[in-house]
C-alpha cells in the first residue's frame, strides 16, 4: 500500500507544469525515502531528476517499493481539477494498475477523487557521477527565466560564460547579437535576490535556448535557481522545492562548430 498526503496540491501541480513539456510520460519511483523520478526527453538531450522527500509530506506510507508509470498529460488533467488550496492524497495498492488522487478543499466541504490508469514504461536510469563543477551560480529564478526568454528571441543557443567578475549570457542570430551580464551582488541582505558565484575555473559553454526555456517552467517552484557548469559535463539547472525536495535538469551542451 502506498499513500502520500501533500498539504498543497498546488506544489505538485507546479512540479508537473515544470516537467510536462519535456516528458510525455514518466515513472514515479516510490520508496520509504520518498518519490523520485528520472527521465530523459525524447531526443535524449536533457534529463529531468525529481526528488520529493517523504518528510515533506503530511503523511507518507510506502510498504513496498513501487513504480508508477504515468502519462503526464493525463496527470495534468487530473491536477487541473484541484483547487489552489486543496490538499492531495496519492494512493495506490501494491500491485495495482491504477493510482488514485484525492483532493480535499480546506474546510473539507468538498472532496473529489480521480483514479488514473498506470502504464508499464521501459525504464532507463542514468548513473550520474559526482562532479566537481568549475562554476556554481545562484541567481533569482525569475531573472534567469527573463534572460533566457529575452535572448531566445535572437538566436537558437545561449553561451553561458562565467568568470570571477560575473556571469555573461550571450546569443547571436540573423538579426544581431544580445548579451546580458550579471555581476555578483555585494548586498547579501536579500538572499532571494542576490547573484552568488562560486568559481574554481572560468568556463564558457553553449546550450540550446529551447531547452533552457522549458526548464524555466519550474520558476514558480522556487525564488532561486542554481546553475552548475563544467567543461565536458551537462549543465545542471536546479530548483529547490521548499521543504519537499528538488527538481534538477541536466542539459548536454551544443556541439561546437569546430567539433564537426
Amino acid at each position: 500500500m502506498f499513500e502520500a498526503r501533500l498539504a498543497s496540491s498546488a506544489t505538485f501541480k507546479k512540479v508537473l507544469d515544470a516537467i510536462k513539456d519535456l516528458l510525455n510520460e514518466a515513472s514515479f519511483d516510490c520508496s520509504d525515502a520518498g518519490i523520485q523520478l528520472q527521465a530523459m526527453d525524447n531526443s535524449h538531450v536533457s534529463l529531468v531528476s525529481l526528488n520529493l522527500k517523504s518528510d515533506g509530506f503530511e503523511k507518507y506510507r510506502c510498504d513496498r517499493n513501487l513504480t508508477m508509470g504515468m502519462n503526464l498529460a493525463s496527470l495534468s488533467k487530473v491536477f487541473r481539477c484541484s483547487g489552489s488550496d486543496d490538499t492531495v492524497t496519492i494512493k495506490a495498492q501494491d500491485d495495482a494498475d491504477t493510482v488514485t488522487f484525492m483532493f480535499e478543499a480546506k474546510k473539507q466541504e468538498k472532496i473529489s477523487d480521480y483514479e488514473m490508469k498506470l502504464m508499464n514504461l521501459d525504464q532507463e536510469h542514468l548513473g550520474i557521477p559526482e562532479t566537481e563543477f568549475s562554476c556554481i551560480i545562484k541567481l533569482p529564478s525569475g531573472e534567469f527565466a527573463r534572460i533566457v526568454r529575452d535572448l531566445s528571441q535572437f538566436g537558437e543557443s545561449i553561451v553561458i560564460s562565467c568568470t570571477k567578475e560575473g556571469v555573461k549570457f550571450s546569443t547571436q542570430g540573423d538579426i544581431g547579437t544580445g548579451n546580458v551580464k550579471l555581476a555578483q551582488t555585494n548586498n547579501f541582505d536579500k538572499e532571494d535576490q542576490s547573484v552568488i558565484i562560486d568559481m574554481q575555473e572560468p568556463v564558457s559553454l553553449t546550450f540550446s535556448c529551447e531547452y533552457l526555456n522549458s526548464f524555466t517552467k519550474a520558476t514558480p517552484l522556487s525564488n532561486q535557481v542554481t546553475l552548475s557548469l563544467c567543461d565536458n559535463v551537462p549543465l545542471v539547472v536546479e530548483y529547490q522545492i521548499p521543504d519537499l525536495g528538488h527538481l534538477k535538469y541536466y542539459l548536454a551542451p551544443k556541439i561546437e562548430e569546430d567539433e564537426n
Binding site: V45, L126, S208, V233, P253
Partner: peptide
C-alpha cells in the same frame, strides 16, 4: 537540436534497472 546537440547519454551511462 538532434544534429547540433550532444546527448546526456554521451556523459551519463545507462543503468538498466
Amino acid at each position: 537540436v538532434r544534429n547540433s546537440n550532444h546527448k546526456v547519454t554521451d556523459y551519463f551511462t545507462v543503468r538498466k534497472s
